[in-house]
Structure formats: C-alpha cells, structure tokens
C-alpha cells in the first residue's frame, strides 16, 4: 500500500468519524438556530446586545451544565442545583451583608454550601439504592425549605441585599463594557477544567466506564463511590459558584430563583449530544448545546415572536436532539460493520 492511499484512507476515516460524532449534530443545530434568529432579529441580534444577551445566559447555565453533564455521562442526575443556586446566593448575602463579614468569607461559605449539598447527594446515592433523580429531588426540596426558613429567621424577609466591594464585584459580578458578564470568563475556565478532566486525564475514562456499567467499573478497580460523590460535589460547587456570581451581579438574593436551572442545564447537556442514560458525551457537545439553548432562549426576544414560541422551539429541539443522539449512537456502533476488509 502506498503512502498516499494510506493517507487518503485515514483522511476518509477521520471524516467518517467526524460525521458520526454526536457533536456534529449539535453544531448543525446551533448554526440553524442562529441563522433563524439572525434572520428574524436582524442587526440588533447580530450586534453586541444580541451577543451579550445570549452569552450571558450561556455562561450561567453553562457552568452548571458542564458539571451536570459529567454527572449524566456518569449515569446520574442532579436536580438539586436549582435550590443550591439561591442557597449559596443567600449565604453570601447573609454572611457578608447581614452579618457584615468580609466578602471572601461569605463567598467561601456559599461555595461550601454547594459542596455540602453535593456530598449529601453523592453519599445518599452511593449508600442507598435510591435513584439519583429521587435523591436530588429530595435534597432540592430540603435545601429550598432550609434556605427559606433560615432567611426569614435571620433576615426577616425572603430577599437580602448586598453591596459588594469593587474588587469582588470586578472579579465575579461585573458587566464588561456594560453588557458582557464577567461570568463568561469563568465559564471558559470551567470549560478548560472539565475538558481536561473528561478528555485528557485518566479520570475521564473512569467517568465513561461508570456511566457505561457501574458494576464492571467497580470490578475493574475504579473507586466508584468516591468518584460519584466527587462528581456530585462538583455539580454542587458549580451551582454554588453561579449563585455567588448572581448575588454579586444583581446585588440581591432571593429565595426562589434558580429553579429554571434544573431543566435548562439538563436540556443544554442533552441538546449537546450527551446520552441521558450515561456512558457517552463530550465537553464540546455540552458547550454547543448550551450555546444553542441560549440562542433560542434569548433570540426570541429579538425576533418579535411571541416569547412562548421560544419554549416550544426549545422543547422541539430537545426531542430532536434525543432522537438524533440515538441514531448517532447507532451509526457509531455500526461503524465496524461497514468497514472494508
């Protein structure tokens, strides 16, 4: 075999592999959605206001989606993120504003709340046979109740205000150029870290194996309990981080914010080609899914369409994504059969 034919064949194989990747579908979906709203929304949507509005949305939900995505790849779900976000926001506001502690203490306390909820989730999921869906619904309501109770008890109302000092504000809650939330740089950092975890480090292999078959993963010597607890703590941390960013950006914390993140994060992950049953998915896919979701979510306001249509589009996208994930998986699995001998 000459080198050129070999090159050609490997190039064809690369192309074949690219087409068979679930992310290709997510990318196409994103392009279609963007063109659609660009056509309707016109110059405003294409300009900085449009960009900043969907990137801001993407950054917040994206941080949560990355961590929730890892959990879904590992075969678990986390719905408690919806109440961890307000819990950490209020912790920051109460510790630093109500009690007047230094902001760094408040921020650390907020992040610790997320880690603790994550630990409880992971602990319950690994020590009992209760599915993570139920466990995290339980902790979601538990955390919500505790947040509401303590906030009313301590602050006497369901919202707490905070005026952050300029440094913390600049790092975590600033609008760059009056439009772009600083959170998007943190999102970028999260993308790099989670990409390293899943695709570069050996731990990624453990996560895929865990989602593929828990029993076999354990038999192969993977510390499945520790890994599961760690992943839940990561998602708790990510949600708490978003909560901290929110309170510093909007300078107030309310008890009942964050519920939208529960399904939005899962939708971003699934639109991004992650298999809901675990074992397959990628960081690039999750990022593309997040962007697609945010473009629809914000684009609708620029398009002049009834905002309710946006929900319909997102719902349809989700169904299409799940269907195409399934067929992408099938083609990926049948790759072997078609290959020339």
């Amino acid at each position: 075999m000459s080198t050129t034919t070999k090159d050609k064949r490997s190039a064809a194989r690369m192309l074949g592999r690219l087409v068979r990747r679930a992310e290709t579908g997510s990318f196409l979906g994103m392009v279609v959605v963007y063109i659609f709203f660009a056509a309707l929304g016109g110059r405003v949507f294409l300009g900085a206001p449009g960009f900043s509005s969907w990137l801001n949305t993407a950054a917040e939900v994206g941080i949560v989606a990355l961590a929730v995505g890892l959990l879904i790849i590992a075969g678990e779900l986390d719905l408690s993120v919806g109440s961890v976000i307000p819990a950490s926001s209020l912790t920051v506001a109460i510790v630093s504003s109500h009690y007047g502690a230094p902001e760094i203490i408040g921020i650390l306390a907020g992040l610790v709340v997320g880690l603790m909820v994550g630990f409880v989730n992971g602990f319950l999921v690994t020590r009992t046979s209760i599915p993570s869906l139920i466990v995290t619904i339980g902790t979601m309501f538990g955390v919500m109740g505790l947040t509401l109770g303590f906030t009313v008890l301590i602050a006497g109302s369901t919202g707490v205000f905070i005026v952050p000092d300029p440094v913390t504000k600049a790092l975590l809650g600033q609008f760059v150029g009056g439009m772009f939330q600083v959170t998007m740089f943190w999102w970028a950092a999260f993308i790099v870290i989670v990409f390293y975890l899943l695709h570069v480090s050996p731990y990624g292999n453990w996560i895929y194996a865990l989602g593929g078959d828990r029993e076999s993963a354990r038999n192969a010597g993977i510390p499945t309990r520790k890994l599961t607890i760690g992943l839940f703590m990561l998602s708790g941390f990510a949600a708490a981080f978003v909560g901290v960013g929110q309170v510093l950006t909007y300078q107030s914390a309310q008890v009942l914010t964050g519920q939208a993140f529960i399904f939005n994060s899962i939708m971003c992950v699934v639109i991004g080609g992650v298999l809901l049953t675990g074992g397959a998915g990628s960081v690039i896919g999750i990022v593309l899914g997040t962007l697609t979701f945010s473009i629809v979510n914000q684009g609708i306001f620029f398009s002049g369409l009834d905002p309710n249509i946006g929900s319909v589009i997102i719902g349809a996208l989700l169904l299409i994504a799940v269907l195409s994930n399934d067929s992408f998986r099938k083609t990926a699995l049948s790759f072997a059969a078609k290959k020339a001998p």
Binding site: N205, Y208, G212, D213, A217, A220, R329
Partner: peptide, 28 residues
C-alpha cells in the same frame, strides 16, 4: 465488553489507564 460506547483502547485499560506527564498534568 461491558462498555459498548467506549473505544477499544479506552475500555481495554479501564481502571489501569496508561498515563504520561504533560507539564504538571497527568494525561491519559
């Protein structure tokens, strides 16, 4: 193979991944 969605190389080494160093990072 119990991990149908993993590659041959990845599933072969589940739990005992060959590693190399790239700066301070451990790489599969």
């Amino acid at each position: 193979g119990t991990f149908p969605l993993m590659s041959i190389g990845r599933s072969f080494f589940v739990g005992v991944e060959p590693q190399k160093k790239w700066g301070p990072f451990t790489v599969f």
